[in-house]
Nucleic acid binder design. Structure first.
Lengths: 232, 232
DNA sequence: CGCCTTATTTGACGCGGCGCAAAGTCTGTT
DNA sequence: AACAGACTTTGCGCCGCGTCAAATAAGGCG
């Protein structure tokens, strides 16, 4: 709550790109900023959605638990992403749980302001629509992959997406820039950690990636892409 | 293009619920209405998204074809649903193909008006957000099911959703109110028509449903629900 | 530094469900 | 009425991948 957020921090984000300075200032004036240490929880599935958020820095995983105890990762939240906007989904509670996969910094607004902002600020409405629209398209992509592709290809796609969204170039390749376990990858692709472990081991033998405890380094991006496209 | 659309036809739709009469009239004045006969195509995947639509009557299936020729059903469009609003997804082409599963009546607007409408009309923006939000949630539900449930439960859920959205009470049970093939159900649940056929045959033996060529009647809703919840 | 927890690896095994194939059935058409 | 085309059913064999089990490794912490 302490941090003062300067306009310049959020201005480059697509969400704010079409807003005037005064509009941005107005919105920021209602925000509170918070920090979440690695592993900390930002909101919990099923609790009242009192706030919606914008991730400034770090990385979050949003998970859902099914009634019978199975868990899936709904998505990974990257810097610049809105998250927890349950109101837009016509919900009063959070459909998932968000916790920090790395030290994270985010802004929070009371949910009650969502409609106000959107109605007050057409540019925000359009941005928000595009944000959710993108998310919808990602979800469809995932459905398509799960429907039609075997596990190895799905894992390849998931890793490629992570590399694109959270990849940091490193001497040996592209480092996934936050802690990610095989279990996480399994929950992102609809398989088991055992299968993921086997697949990554095989890839490691072929020099495509390099694993480690909660670590992942992509060595051969094009090789992995070929694999994702279905070539053996 | 000929039909005149009266305000009263669209007014009950949630999309328009928060709009004034004059706003509705303005929007309708830009719409053209069309009819699609059963089997006819409304738009094709990959073609420029020149229009967005609202289904007034009938039923559409939106499909996607993967590069390697696999097909999935992205969703079924029910009366009152917006569809083909690629603009909101930041796309210039349609990500899928829509064709009529039954005789359908719909409105069409030039895509170029989308931003205009949304910015001009905050209530529409909020409605559209909720519409897409709902769709996103549906997609997540589907992902969750595909990740964690075996085929039979997924099919049960799919049939229950159809019954809810497109069910017409009939003396023997609930009739799915449009032509739907096993292939369709397979593409909605990420399996093959063979498996769907087997599952429905088994259900028919147990008196849960009654099948037919492109027909489906749900006989025992609660029994099917139990099955969907995981009870054998 | 050694213990404890958590993540990972690997093997063995079995099965759900997919691929393949062929027969059966319904509907619209000529 | 017969035919063609589309949809459905059903059997069979195989295999990808989930399940079960157990060993190993890597950090974190006192």
């Amino acid at each position: 709550m302490a941090l003062r957020i300067d306009r310049s921090i959020v201005k480059p984000l697509p969400l704010f790109s079409r807003m005037s300075d005064s509009e941005i200032d107005l919105i920021l004036s209602h925000a509170s900023s918070s920090r979440a240490a690695q592993g900390e929880t930002v909101f919990v599935q099923g609790t009242p959605a009192n706030h919606f958020f914008l991730l400034l820095n770090g990385r979050l995983k949003v998970t859902q638990v099914t009634p019978d105890g199975q868990q899936i990762i709904v998505r990974v939240v990257h810097p610049g992403d809105l998250f927890g906007f349950a109101k837009a989904l016509q919900r009063t509670d959070y459909p998932g749980t968000a916790h920090a996969a790395a030290e994270s910094l985010y802004l929070a607004w009371p949910t009650s302001l969502w409609s106000f902002f959107v109605e007050q600020n057409p540019a925000l409405a359009v941005s928000a629509l595009q944000t959710i629209g993108n998310r919808l398209e990602e979800a469809h992509t995932r459905i398509r992959e799960m429907s039609t592709q075997e596990v190895e290809r799905r894992v390849a796609h998931a890793v490629l997406r992570l590399a694109g969204k959270a990849g940091r170039p490193e001497d040996g390749g592209i480092r996934i820039d936050f802690q990610i376990s095989k279990q996480d990858i399994a929950e992102m692709t609809g398989t088991t950690l055992h299968t993921v472990s086997r697949i990554l081991s095989a890839w490691e033998d072929r020099g495509l990636v390099e694993g480690g405890r909660q670590k992942l380094l992509v060595r051969d991006l094009t090789g992995l892409s070929r694999l994702a496209e279905g070539e053996k």
